[in-house]
C-alpha cells in the first residue's frame, strides 16, 4: 500500500497547493455508485473562473451481490467551458488510486490499481444550491495484484499479475450541494 499512500499524499498536496477561489465548495455523491452500493463522497473546490478540483473517496464491501471490497480515492481537475464552474459543459483530467479485493467466478483478485483518465460531463443547474452532473470518461488503469483461484494457498506478499487496462472511467450521475 506504500504506493497508494504516496499517491494519496500527492493528490492531497495537489489540492492544497491550488489556490482556493470564491470560497465555493460543493459536496457531491455519484448516484449510480450509490445505487451500486458503493458509497462515495466528493468535495469540489472552485479554484478559478473556469476551473475546479474534485476529490473523491469511495469504498465498498459488496457491489450488489458481487463480493468486491474496495477503497479508493480520485482527484480530478476540471475545466468549465462556459465560464462559470458547476455550470454546463466541462472536461476533467483525473487520477485514481484504489485497493481492491474481488472474488469473481472462482477467482480472487487482490491488489492495487492506479489510473489516469479524461472525463467529459454536463452540469444542469437545478437551483442556487443544487446541481446534477452527467459524466463519463475513459482511463488507463495500471494494476498490480494477486490473482489466484479460491482455495489456493498464497503468500500475501506475492503479486503475480500486473498490467494495463483501458477502461471506462467515472461514469455517473452526480448530485452536488453547493456550500457558501
Amino acid at each position: 500500500m506504500k504506493p497508494l499512500r504516496l499517491f494519496l499524499l500527492l493528490a492531497l498536496l495537489g489540492c492544497a497547493l491550488t489556490r482556493g477561489h470564491a470560497q465555493l465548495l460543493a459536496l457531491k455523491s455519484n448516484a449510480l455508485l450509490d445505487a451500486a452500493t458503493v458509497p462515495n463522497f466528493s468535495l469540489e473546490v472552485i479554484t478559478g473562473g473556469k476551473t475546479s478540483i474534485v476529490g473523491t473517496a469511495f469504498g465498498s464491501k459488496k457491489v450488489w451481490s458481487l463480493d468486491a471490497q474496495s477503497i479508493g480515492v480520485m482527484s480530478e481537475f476540471r475545466y468549465w467551458f462556459n465560464g462559470r464552474p458547476l455550470t454546463r459543459e466541462f472536461i476533467g483530467f483525473g487520477l485514481m488510486a484504489a485497493n481492491y479485493d474481488i472474488t469473481f467466478d472462482g477467482k480472487r483478485y487482490k491488489g492495487d490499481g492506479y489510473a489516469g483518465a479524461i472525463t467529459f460531463g454536463y452540469d444542469f443547474v437545478l437551483s442556487p444550491h443544487w446541481s446534477v452532473e452527467f459524466h463519463s470518461g475513459v482511463g488507463l488503469l495500471y494494476y498490480d495484484q494477486q490473482r489466484y483461484y479460491i482455495g489456493d494457498r498464497i503468500r500475501d506478499y506475492y503479486y503475480n499479475a500486473r498490467g494495463f487496462y483501458l477502461l471506462p472511467y467515472n461514469i455517473g450521475i452526480t448530485f452536488a450541494w453547493i456550500l457558501r
Binding site: 470564491a22 470560497q23 465555493l24 462559470r84 458547476l86 455550470t87 443547474v125 437551483s127 442556487p128 453547493i178 457558501r180
Partner: peptide
Amino acid sequence: TTMLRHMAY
C-alpha cells in the same frame, strides 16, 4: 442562479 453562486450568495 449561477450569479447568486458567483457572488457567494
